Computed example of a mutant assay.
Amino acid sequence: MKALRFNGDVLVTGANSMEYLKKIKYNKAFIVTGGQSMFKSGVINKVKEYLGNDEERIFVYSGIGKNPTTEEVKKGIESIKKFEPDLVVAVGGGSPIDAAKIIALIYEYPELNVETLTKSILPEKRYKTKFVAIPSTSGTASEVTNVSVLTYEDINLKLGIKSPSLRPDIAILDGNIPMTLPYNIAAETGMDALTHAIEAYINKTSDDFTEVLAKGAIEGLIEWLPISCNNKDIESRQKVHNYQSMAGMAFSNSGLGMVHGISHAFGGKYNLAHGLTNAIILPYAMKYNSRDKEVFKKFEKLSTAVGFNIIEKVESLNKELGIAGCIKDAGISEEDFNRDYDLLVENSMCGSTVANPIKIDIEVMKKLVKTVYNGTEIDY
């Protein structure tokens, strides 16, 4: 028996779908967002407008970075406790949505501690707030998942926190919002989504439902991501927005793999963008995992579907989108890498690496970490 859940109560999609906010009844709304992009683009003002523009009933907590930290979340918890809302609206990339998940959870369950969330048994539901997620980037699919990723600065590591109570109640996929994404962010977040879809598709716990969602997302992203980056038109941006959410629905049920384990190690240490590190690591992990017979067969199916060898296609897509070929080319110096190597290896063994189709031991990980940093061939 397997219990599957693909999103919260409602998923609203399409251009101008943010107007759905007008239908939500609330007493006080707590909006969580990142830096300035959602203000400059006018999205925050739109959210306020659709919620009624009542300043006494709306509070905006901003400043969540690209890799949300425990300190940013703690400050948000302090603010939400003072404001006492019954509606939480997360607007922006995966980072503010992930942060808002934890802020809303601990607001309702103050006995929980941010530092010990990864080791705690978390509540199954929230009752105090309605939670709306409005993504501005097309990658993390945090709007439909039961996962939040936080950076624990004391250990230089990004850790995933899982619970059904973290899944937003309402997801709004408004294609107008990612229209403002610059080329590199659209490319990196899109490759993040492709990583989610591929790792979900080859995961050993994948099932009929997640396989179809993941495979559909892979085919859709390979076709529409380059168009979205280059043309920046509403059709392609909405398509990528939808496909990335499908990838999230798949991986939140099936799990991921070592791309995310290694990515979180590098991202947590060097504050690299998550989509960028995933994109860099993905083809190396695909090559290594293809030695598994089941994975190899699935890659053959994907190759037939897209008309190219799927691993070569991912590599060429990275090049086409201007993604660095290795972590070194992303700006991490050899001095820093050599100094931090043992920590990176240790941290890469954590998180989603344990769910990789091929079990990875420490000796193999030592080689993999060097491979993705230097961009060398996998010959082991």
Rank of each mutant, 00 (worst) to 15 (best):
S165W: 12
I378Q: 05
N289L: 06
I222P: 00
N289F: 02
K366F: 13
A133L: 09
D86I: 12
N318E: 09
V43L: 00
V32K: 06
M365R: 05
A273C: 13
D9R: 15
K215N: 07
N253V: 07
L221A: 08
Y243E: 05
K130Y: 12
S148M: 04
D292W: 07
L213H: 07
K204Y: 12
D379Q: 14
D54Q: 10
S136E: 05
R339T: 15
N176V: 03
Y288H: 13
N338E: 15
E56T: 14
A217P: 08
G76L: 06
K74L: 11
A265W: 03
L343E: 13
M349H: 06
T205L: 09
S333M: 05
N184A: 04
E108P: 09
I310G: 01
G92F: 01
A273T: 14
G63C: 10
N278M: 07
E199H: 06
K204Q: 13
G267H: 04
A15P: 07
G93A: 00
V32N: 07
E49M: 10
I134H: 04
L117I: 08
N45E: 15
E188A: 01
M1R: 12
K301G: 04
N176Y: 08
K215W: 04
E294P: 00
G190L: 01
N203H: 11
G42V: 08
K82D: 14
L194W: 01
N156H: 14
T195F: 04
S290T: 11
I77S: 02
G139T: 09
G351A: 14
P178G: 00
I360R: 04
G160A: 14
Y20H: 14
G248S: 02
T189W: 02
G8Y: 11
V73M: 06
T376D: 14
S254P: 10
S142F: 00
P357T: 03
D192E: 06
E124I: 15
T376Y: 12
K66S: 15
K74N: 12
S348L: 05
Y50P: 04
Y341P: 10
F251S: 01
R126P: 08
T151M: 07
N231Q: 15
A250T: 12
K319Y: 13
M38L: 11
I222Y: 01
Y61R: 08
F131H: 06
L317C: 02
K293F: 12
E49F: 12
I202R: 00
T195G: 03
R167N: 04
D340R: 13
L51F: 02
T353Y: 10
A193N: 03
A99E: 04
D154M: 02
D379S: 14
S263L: 09
S254V: 14
N156K: 12
A187C: 08
K293I: 14
E111V: 13
V47I: 15
A324H: 09
F6L: 15
H260N: 05
T118N: 10
I185C: 00
V147E: 03
D86L: 09
A100R: 02
T116D: 07
I222H: 00
K328C: 03
S333L: 11
Y61D: 09
D292F: 09
P226I: 13
G331L: 11
H264W: 13
A187Q: 00
R237P: 03
P283S: 08
T145S: 07
T69G: 09
L11T: 12
N278C: 14
I170A: 02
I234Q: 00
S352R: 07
K239H: 10
G351N: 08
E84W: 10
N146L: 13
G375Y: 06
K239D: 05
I77R: 06
